[in-house]
Design a binder for these strands. Structure first.
Length: 825
RNA sequence: GGGCGAGUGGUGGAAUGGCAUACACGAUGGACUUAAAAUCCAUUGGCCUAACGGCUAUAAGGGUUCGACUCCCUUCUCGCCCACCA
């Protein structure tokens, strides 16, 4: 008997799969396709446990689908542009390209060592011109449709990365990559008009029934649609209308002051020449110096100042003061609010601080006739309107609608919908990204690079210092370009695209990665898309997944695709931790997959990472579990070897009694494992059921060895075990399958089906309860009549003891499960 | 502040109205061995009991139910996401 020599086995089978092109697929209309995709990695050099987990999950699903008869597309590539390559290039005194390609070849090697079933012919990397050419093409199409535009505005700026950031890339007021506090800067930048699709992006979330609820919620919150009313408050002296946005039109009669954001454009005109002008300007100046993070933090006291101006509340002609305060944000709504201190907690605190007037307009059912001065906090719940003229006595929810309609009639307000979503800022002042294909001409202005001139390639020879602005702007040969329109001297855009642009459509490129005449082949995309199963980290819940949805919708507008949503099903796998912390180089707590592969083999690693926790949960790495995984594989290995030896010497006999139980277990396990592979994805319990099956096969095999007789179920069980395990630990299972005499890969073997008839038992064991407590067990024919069952339950020796001297009130029977005898008293 | 999720043995976890603690790790004892490792066998929530067995336990408290880890209410703790969003 040979040992389980995983190093040899894994190497040989990886070579077999490669040389037989087992995972290279072609479009085939006669077969049902299945597209399984894992989020492609950033080529940082080595794969980490997070990758191992992500890609193992995907690989198991892909291999199962192959055996279930699907034409499976399972590609991989690299999200290769981005800042770390620039930083690494500076550090290692090399070019970003050399560094990146070096990393890619390392990672390819490691991914292959894991035995993943990728179609390597489709491998792509976003830093290659044949890929980013199409980034530029997409950009031009967007430009043509008015969806890519340049504007000057306050942007998020990371001083450490020396670049701008999209709103989605600002996490807790810091840069998502380096956590440096984000500053505000006024810059002229390129934006993509994602807001064009805001309604579709929100509505189509309804189609994503197989996405985790929390991702849907996060996207909904991010898009942030709110229905409300825009109300116009005239300024007393000039009559200038101040538009204010509110979702609480029902509280309009309680508005006792108006607040403008310090950046509000109307403010300047309003205070000019007024007595308080100097103080107000000082205040505005001070706020503008505050960082976003400190201004937005909840525990900082809200500051504000009276402008010296007054507005008229259009519903009751009351003269109310106009303030400016840092708790009102310019980039939401209209940048101005009506303050209702009695019914909004923020206004309540601010009004209290600055002794501003308050009026109750919604009466709480619990505290009628509430006086503002008695309130300790704002009353934000519902109730009946008071102090609200003709709306008095109305329920506040009903009043919302009525007041809105009335104000529209009176032309003092207008119903409006506001979104929180902002257009996507894509300019980055960095080198290692896709050049934005635009030329600036003194005569013609912004001129897009003609399609025939694509790609605009990144210059190779470049100095990257990490300081002093955009590296591309220093490359004269790159910057100088003739204007495509007039032929005159022009200058290229030196900003590059945010790398999330690259990853927003890579899944489409996989359908036809060699297609050099188009962004992707329409027919191929029609066949392969949409992605049936997408797997990746929760950290992309908003960023990548929102951008990709946007791109899909744009391609639909172009008529290139006919689906609305790119990813049908989404699985967000949990993080792999070490001692409760994220593994990172700086913490020095990295567990290198490569070491684990050398020590235990890829199959053990794959098995363990799936067995340790359900895919969606976080899990804390613990090497002891690796021993367990390895031990299980060795057990299976030995089991199959022993079976083979026995088979050569033993006689076949008809189904012996001890195989009956095994047969039931076998079919139950086929059912369980198939369900998890198909969509349950609880691989941890699927594996435990395979362990149970193994545990049940062992004594039967031992008995067969003693009697030198093998029954048909034992053989079926051993073979099926190997097949069921093969998506998880493919190398070992291939080897075992070969030992069974197969000349083909196990992947060509049809997935087993369970026989429902075999799951029917002749006899069943039921639990007998007295007053809800388990007191005994009873084995009865499966088809026993209820009355007969009751009689036999009461006849049970132990039950008799419990029932003795008491009267039975009622007997509950749950079919195939239990009998509960309820006693009197 | 809002939203979502979680809390089960020494550990990872299983069970989503019906036998709580599957499967595994670890631990303890035993077999094999000169010995160790590996392997195999047994035990393993807590308490009581010589044993049969009993009692008790799923963050805490209450409720619904014949029956609750599971459903409902209250509270606590942790995690994640969003957050002066008007």
């Amino acid at each position: 008997m040979s040992d389980y020599d995983f190093l040899r086995i894994e190497k040989e089978w990886q070579e077999y799969w490669r040389s037989h092109n087992l995972f290279n697929v072609k479009m085939d209309e006669s077969k049902e396709k299945y597209y399984v995709l894992e989020m492609f990695p950033y080529p940082s050099g080595r794969i980490h446990m997070g990758h191992v987990r992500n890609y193992t999950i995907g690989d198991v699903i892909a291999r199962y689908r192959m055996q279930a008869g699907f034409n499976v597309l399972h590609p991989i590539g690299f999200d290769a542009f981005g800042q770390p390559a620039e930083n690494a290039a500076i550090k290692h005194k090399t070019g970003p390209k050399e560094w990146t390609e070096n990393c890619i070849s390392w990672m390819v090697k490691e991914l292959k060592q894991m035995g993943f079933s990728y179609d390597w012919d489709r491998e792509l990397s976003t830093h290659r011109p044949q890929y980013y050419k199409w980034n530029q093409w997409i950009f031009l199409k967007m430009f043509e449709k008015g969806l890519a535009y340049k504007k000057s505005s306050g942007v998020n700026w990371c001083a450490s990365c020396e670049t701008t950031l999209a709103n989605e890339e600002v996490v807790n007021g810091g840069c998502w990559r380096c956590h440096t506090e984000v500053e505000q800067k006024e810059l002229d930048q390129w934006y993509l008009k994602i807001t064009e699709y805001q309604d579709a992006l929100l509505e189509d979330l309804e189609l994503l029934n197989d996405w985790p609820e929390r991702v849907i919620t996060m996207q909904k919150n991010w898009i942030g649609k709110s229905y409300g009313l825009e109300i116009y408050f005239p300024e007393v002296d000039t009559g200038t209308l101040i538009p204010v946005f509110t979702t609480r039109a029902d509280t309009i009669f309680g508005a006792t002051y108006v607040v403008l954001a310090p950046e509000h454009p109307l403010l300047d005109e309003m205070i000019k020449g007024r007595s308080r002008e100097k103080d107000v300007r000082e205040f505005i100046e001070r706020v503008s110096r505050e960082s976003k993070i400190s201004r937005m933090s909840a525990d900082v006291k809200k500051e504000g100042i009276f402008t010296g101006c007054f507005a008229v509340n259009p519903v009751n002609y009351e003269k109310i003061p106009i303030w400016t305060a840092d708790y009102v944000l310019m980039d939401y709504g209209t940048g101005a609010i009506m303050a209702v201190p009695t019914h909004d907690q923020r206004d309540f605190l601010f009004a209290g601080e600055h002794r501003l007037p308050m009026r109750v307009v919604i009466q709480s059912p619990n505290t009628p006739n509430q006086l503002p001065e008695k309130m300790t906090q704002a009353y934000e719940a519902g109730g009946i309107l008071v102090n609200s003229a003709q709306f008095d006595g109305m329920d506040n929810e009903a009043a919302k609608e009525k007041i809105a309609l009335w104000m529209e009639e009176e032309k003092i307000g207008q119903r409006k919908v506001f979104f929180r979503l902002r257009d996507w800022l894509i300019s980055r002042q960095r080198y290692w990204g896709t050049p934005i294909p635009v030329i600036y001409c003194r005569q013609c202005g912004i001129v897009p690079v003609p399609e025939k001139d694509l790609p605009v390639t990144l210059p190779d020879k470049i100095e990257i210092s990490g300081t002093g602005g955009s590296p591309l702007s220093k490359v004269k040969e790159f910057v100088d370009a003739a204007c495509p329109k007039c032929g005159g001297p022009g200058q290229r855009e030196t900003d590059t695209m945010a790398t999330f642009f690259d990853s927003s459509w890579y899944f489409l490129r996989y359908c036809s990665p060699q297609q050099n005449e188009a962004v992707f082949d329409k027919q191929e995309a029609k066949y392969w898309m949409t992605v049936d199963q997408y797997i990746g980290g929760i950290e992309h819940a908003v960023l990548h997944l929102l951008y990709s949805r946007f791109f899909a919708k744009f391609f639909r507008t172009l008529g290139l695709v006919d689906f609305k949503e790119p990813f049908r099903k989404l699985l967000t796998q949990g993080m792999v931790l070490k001692d409760g912390e994220v593994m990172s180089k700086s913490k020095g707590n990295i567990v290198d997959p490569d070491e684990m592969i050398k020590k235990y083999g890829a199959d053990s690693l794959r098995l363990f990472i799936l067995f340790a926790a359900p895919p969606e949960a976080e899990f804390d790495w613990n090497e002891r579990g690796m021993d367990g995984a390895w031990r299980f594989l060795t057990r299976v290995w030995t089991l199959v070897q022993n079976f083979r030896e026995l088979k050569q010497a033993a006689l076949t006999q008809p189904l012996p009694i001890q195989e009956k139980e095994l047969e039931f277990k076998l079919h139950a396990v086929i059912k369980k494992v198939t369900e998890e592979m198909k969509g349950g994805f609880k691989f941890n319990t699927a594996i435990s059921s395979l362990m149970e099956l193994t545990n049940e096969i062992m004594p039967v095999l031992r008995r067969a060895e003693e009697t030198k007789r093998i029954g048909p179920v034992l053989e079926q069980a051993v073979r099926t075990l190997v097949i069921l395990l093969s998506p998880i630990t493919p190398h070992m299972c291939e080897e075992l399958w070969k030992l069974f005499g197969s000349r083909e890969s196990i992947i060509k073997t049809a997935w087993p089906r369970y026989d429902p008839a075999k799951l029917q038992k002749d006899e069943i064991t039921l639990v007998l309860q007295v007053n809800g407590k388990v007191r005994s067990k009873i084995t009865v024919p499966a088809d026993i009549a209820e009355e007969e069952l009751k009689t036999r339950a009461l006849d049970d020796t132990k039950i008799k003891e419990w029932v003795k001297g008491k009267s039975v009130k009622k007997i509950f029977v749950v079919k195939n499960k239990l009998v509960n005898i309820l006693l009197e008293g």
